[in-house]
């Protein structure tokens, strides 16, 4: 099953929409609550990343009875040093974003912790593609 959601850069009030929708789907196909939580936390962090850094993005989810594959693609500044971005506490978020309680540098590490497979690619000045898988 394919699901697609748009994410608007800069609109923090809408961050969490895709994760809420995906959560509803996963509850309906009777996925264990703890696994749902991991997926939702990872996806929410991913959405916040797009909102905080990019101009726009899309969330694509593919769900079957064994796993969920999520691809978050954005148009934005991209990531200079992926290894650094994966480090806890490292953040390039603006002062404005931090004032809103985001940008503590925990996003990507938190996503990594909550997924079974993760792939991050980025082109500076163009955008970022984050792929993740969680097995049921």
């Amino acid at each position: 099953m394919l699901f697609k959601y748009e994410v608007e850069g800069g609109n923090f009030s809408k961050a969490g929409f895709a994760s809420s929708e995906i959560k509803k789907i996963l509850k309906q196909i009777n996925i264990d609550a703890k696994i749902i939580k991991r997926i939702v936390v990872a996806l929410y962090e991913g959405e916040v990343n797009v909102v905080a850094h990019a101009t726009r993005g899309t969330v694509l989810a593919d769900i079957d009875d064994k796993q969920i594959y999520i691809r978050i693609e954005d148009e934005g500044p991209g990531i200079n040093d992926i290894n650094l971005a994966m480090k806890e506490g490292y953040s390039t978020a603006s002062e404005k974003v931090r004032e809103m309680g985001f940008g503590a540098g925990m996003g990507l590490p938190n996503i990594k912790r909550n997924t079974d497979w993760l792939n991050l690619t980025s082109n500076v000045g163009e955008g970022t593609v984050l792929e993740m898988k969680t097995f049921f």
Partner: peptide, 23 residues
């Protein structure tokens, strides 16, 4: 105890099939 009324089927495989039909 949880007693979820949201699942379309206890079996995830069947629930996915039902979800496809719902869509």
């Amino acid at each position: 105890e949880p007693r979820s009324m949201l699942a379309l089927d206890e079996d995830t495989g069947k629930a996915v099939q039902k979800m496809l039909q719902v869509r």
